[in-house]
């Protein structure tokens, strides 16, 4: 599904990612872990198509298409979802209306008719029920005045509406207390299927107690220095990042 080959990338001329290769198939969950400054969030920004970040070498393909040639809008339409670490607040834009715009953008692209607010409300209510979300998420403005936990839940609601093929969750666990973390993780688990794939970018292994990865990759100084299964994450938890970074 996603193929990253010898990716070099950075921001404002500083190379931060220095040769990452990674292959992700449908149905798989990959966790990318690493200390601060290891290049995790640069990788996430590159995958999302953030215009401030640039690729200097290597390539990325998504279902055979050259991902780096696509802008953020096209990537989303193609089925990639980015769960942001810091979702922005957009006062004045109703959350339900925003979700309907996003949903309709996909439908229009697929040559289908736009869904009107009433029909969309049914779909939205169904997804919110599945995720156990309160009604306020429909009524409020997009992330406006949301707490950290509410913003992350709202990202998962967007993911549920957009039904992406590949989701990248960037530090989704940061800033969440244990209850919020559990709710978010349960939501993500409900959205899993054998047809979609997930990349979890995280500093701590605690998220992985709730969402079980098939693969764990440790990133340090812009490179993957170790890959393994869930056991690797547990080992990192007990020994710290020094254990892998120094033994490498």
């Amino acid at each position: 599904m996603l193929e990253i080959k010898d990716l070099h990338a950075g921001v404002e001329g500083n190379e931060i990612v220095k040769g990452i290769s990674l292959s992700i198939n449908k149905g798989e969950i990959h966790a990318i872990m690493g200390p601060n400054g290891s290049g995790k969030s640069t990788l996430a920004k590159i995958l999302s198509g953030h215009p401030a970040y640039e690729t200097t070498a290597g390539n990325i393909t998504f279902e055979g298409q050259d991902l780096l040639e696509m802008d953020a809008e096209q990537r989303s339409i193609a089925g990639i979802f980015m769960g942001f670490q810091y979702p922005v607040e957009v006062p004045g834009v109703n959350n339900a209306e925003f979700l309907r715009m996003a949903h309709n953008a996909r439908r229009v692209n697929a040559g289908e008719e736009e869904v009107d607010p009433l029909d969309f409300d049914e779909l939205l209510s169904e997804k919110m029920k599945m995720l156990g979300m309160e009604k306020k998420y429909k009524e409020r403005n997009l992330n406006d005045g949301f707490s950290g936990g509410e913003k992350k839940k709202n990202e998962i609601l967007q993911m549920a509406i957009l039904e992406p093929k590949l989701s990248i969750l960037d530090e989704t666990d940061s800033g969440l207390d244990i209850d919020a973390l559990r709710i978010v993780a349960e939501g993500v688990n409900k959205l899993r299927s054998e047809n979609n794939a997930l990349i979890l970018i995280t500093h701590y292994q605690r998220l992985l107690d709730y969402i079980k990865p098939d693969f764990v990759h440790v990133l340090s100084k812009g490179k993957i220095i170790k890959s393994g299964d869930k056991a690797l994450a547990l080992e990192l938890e007990s020994q710290g990042y020094d254990w892998v970074t120094s033994s490498n």
């Binding site: 999302s48 198509g49 953030h50 215009p51 802008d71 953020a72 809008e73 990537r75 989303s76 339409i77 980015m82 942001f84 979702p87 922005v88 957009v90 006062p91 004045g92 834009v93 109703n94 209306e97 925003f98 715009m101 996003a102 953008a105 996909r106 692209n109 403005n141 967007q158 957009l162």
Partner: peptide, 21 residues
């Protein structure tokens, strides 16, 4: 960028923010 990363065009994003305001 947030709108665009949800597949919503820049034009529609500006329209939504402005009409909200």
């Amino acid at each position: 960028f947030y709108f665009e990363s949800r597949g919503i065009s820049r034009e529609n994003a500006i329209e939504a923010v402005i009409s909200g305001f």
